[in-house]
Design a protein around this nucleic acid. Structure first.
Lengths: 155, 155
DNA sequence: GCGGAATAGTTAGCAGAGGTAATGAGTTAT
DNA sequence: ATAACTCATTACCTCTGCTAACTATTCCGC
């Protein structure tokens, strides 16, 4: 564990909750920025679009509202993302069978293909970095990932 | 450890590096989104501005280029953020003593006051959530925070 | 059954934060 | 002295999020 030595940016000040909050915030913001930047030319889908396709791949067809809740965005934002995905032919919108207000969104065949191919490329950078970590560090992140997501899910 | 049960969004698929990458990406993106939203009215500084003030508070005066590198953004983006902070009186720009091309950015007294006051408010939401975790979970995040930041730092 | 409240989605408009390309000013090297 | 490079800035564009306002549909109370 020598990584703290050459890291002037994040010192070991995460002792208090406030300190941990600050460190976590910085790390999350920077990592997300890097992730957004690591979008090769062959990957025409944005991070958000990939996120939506990923949720659809995991959970099957969902309504716009459910997608918005899952991704923790407001409905209008999800409408835009879904419209964009529909235009590119990756998702299909269909009317809800019993409730005429709702719209059901599902993956198209193209979208299903794409989510696999693009996910591999999309996560290549991060997966490569993960591979460069020690097994212990990976274990920490493996435990941390669901906690992070849970933090994001809370009201 | 029962949290995985009521979390359909993030299953325990983070066994492979690719799976971990995907989970981590989702968690980071969602948490960052929540963080950006949790900005009370009395907090007039944006997340990025806070980030820059935080770096200056830790590392002292830096040039625009160094700040851009630290926050992993392109120089023009940092110029804009710094200009905004200068306008609000939180940082001071001064010419580099030996190199006329560079611009040195430092915290003003007001900025130094503000970084303390606002950081407390800014992290209140996250700190509160952290307090609701178990000590073990906090320990995981405490280990994870520097790893996340290190992932973001890598070329 | 019908009229008002609630809900789902959309549209319109705005702000923040990021990027690239081109420019200007200053420094370094030939 | 001039050519080449570096740092910061300017100009412009994109993406992604938000709120507010509107439409369409459903649900509820009478």
């Amino acid at each position: 564990m020598s990584y703290a030595n050459d890291m002037p940016t994040v010192e070991k000040v995460a002792r208090t909750d406030a300190g941990l909050a600050a460190e976590l915030r910085l790390g999350v913001m920077r990592l997300r920025r890097r992730l957004a930047g690591e979008r090769h030319p062959d990957n025409e889908l944005s991070l958000n679009q990939m996120g939506v396709l990923g949720v659809l791949a995991r959970r099957g067809e969902l309504t716009v509202g459910e997608l918005a809740a899952a991704e923790k965005v407001q409905p209008p934002s999800m409408t835009r993302t879904v419209n964009c995905l529909e235009e590119s032919g990756d998702v299909v919108k269909s009317p809800h069978p019993t409730d005429g207000r709702q719209v059901v969104v599902g993956l198209s065949d193209q979208g299903r293909d794409r989510v696999l191919a693009d996910r591999a490329r999309r996560d290549a950078w991060l997966a490569q970095r993960l591979r460069e970590l020690t097994p212990e560090e990976r274990a920490v992140l493996r435990q941390a990932a669901p906690i992070l997501d849970r933090l994001a899910q809370q009201d």
